[in-house]
Each structure stands twice: as C-alpha cells, then as structure tokens.
C-alpha cells in the first residue's frame, strides 16, 4: 500500500508530467485560457491516459511474446487513435452529458504526447498491470492539477496590463516557469 501512496505523490508533485517532464505542453498552453475548459480537458485526458495505458500494456505483452518490440511506437499510436475514436462513440451513446462535457477535447487527445509518452514510459519500467494503471492515473491527475492551477493563474493574468510584446504566449510561459519553480520545491519529498 505504501508503495502505491509513494507512486501517487511522486507522479503528482515531484515528477509532474507537465512541469518537470514536459509532456503534453501543447494543450497546457492551448486550452488553459479558461478554468472550465481546462478542467474538462484534464478529465478527458485522465480518462484516456488510464485506459490507453492499460490497453497498450496488454498489447506490449503480446508484442514481446511475438518478438516484435520494434513495432511499439507505430502500434501504440494506432491503438490510442482507435481507442479515442471508440471512447467518443461509446460516450455519445451511453452518457450524452459526459460526452457534451468531454466531447470536444477527445479528438485533440490523440496527438497529445502525454498519452503516448505515459504508455511508452510504463512499458520500459517493470510494472505489473495494477501498478501501470495506478501510475497512469496518478500521472494524469498531476496533469490535471498543473492544468487547473495554470488556468486559474491565466484567468487572473488576462485582467492585468502586460507589456505588448509579452501578450499571449510569452507571459503564459513566464507564469509556467514560476509554477514549475514552485513545483521544484517538492523535489526530494519522496
């Protein structure tokens, strides 16, 4: 149990996927203008990362058994793309309310490097299925936390008078830098 708790804290705070591993920075900068969209995106990512990691973990067992490890990259990205499509169709059918909340973000997630990144990281570590799923879930929670914090900061920032050249992305990057510095304070925690 302790091992799972450590993995949880480490994935969220110490090795935050966005602020120390730089995976998924595109949506981090792209859809963080509003708190509500950022929260929706985070939930969709959380769902897809956990699901995709479990599926690719099983797929990797098959690839290893067949001696085809070099197909990892190509098969993982196809599986993720197919999975995202499927999730979209299933959600539309069984839960229209959830679909309307997450729907617009789902197509964007295929090219979110956090999903492929986590799937590829997991298979290089000696995780069993439970650990892999838990790692993916904690990591994506870390993504959500950074995303929501950042969106909150950016909402405040929009009201301020920023020098002309810094408007938009540059000031967002400066904010991200300060946020990353704050998260550095957690290093050495576990």
């Amino acid at each position: 149990m302790a091992e799972f708790a450590i993995m949880f804290i480490s994935a969220i705070f110490v090795n935050n996927i966005l602020l120390s591993q730089f995976l998924g920075v595109c949506p981090f900068l792209g859809v963080s203008n509003k708190l509500s969209t950022a929260a929706g995106m985070s939930m969709a990512v959380c769902f897809v990362i956990t699901l995709a990691t479990v599926v690719t973990y099983l797929l990797n067992m098959l690839l290893v058994a067949l001696g085809l490890e070099f197909l990892q990259t190509i098969s993982f990205i196809l599986v993720i793309a197919a999975l995202v499509q499927m999730v979209e169709i299933v959600l539309k059918k069984i839960s229209p309310s959830l679909y309307s909340a997450l729907g617009i973000f789902l197509p964007l997630i295929t090219t979110n490097c956090a999903v492929l990144g986590v799937a590829l990281t997991v298979v290089t570590k000696d995780f069993n299925l439970g650990q892999a799923a838990w790692y993916a879930f904690s990591t994506s929670l870390g993504f959500g936390l950074a995303m929501v914090l950042f969106a909150g900061l950016r909402e405040q920032l929009a009201l301020n008078d920023v020098p002309k050249a810094f408007k938009g992305i540059p000031i967002a990057l400066v904010t991200a830098s300060l946020l990353a510095m704050a998260f550095m304070g957690f290093s050495g925690l576990v």
Partner: peptide
C-alpha cells in the same frame, strides 16, 4: 542551475519569443 531545469526552459523560451517578436 535553474536554467538547466524545468523553470529555466519556460523562461528562456518566453524571452526568446519576445525578442523574436520585437
């Protein structure tokens, strides 16, 4: 040291974009 770590990456990129824009 911070410039090799994560915060410096964001900061350096921000300033380079600003200079490039100018």
């Amino acid at each position: 040291l911070a410039f090799v770590l994560a915060p410096g990456a964001f900061l350096a990129l921000a300033y380079l974009i600003v200079i490039f824009k100018k």
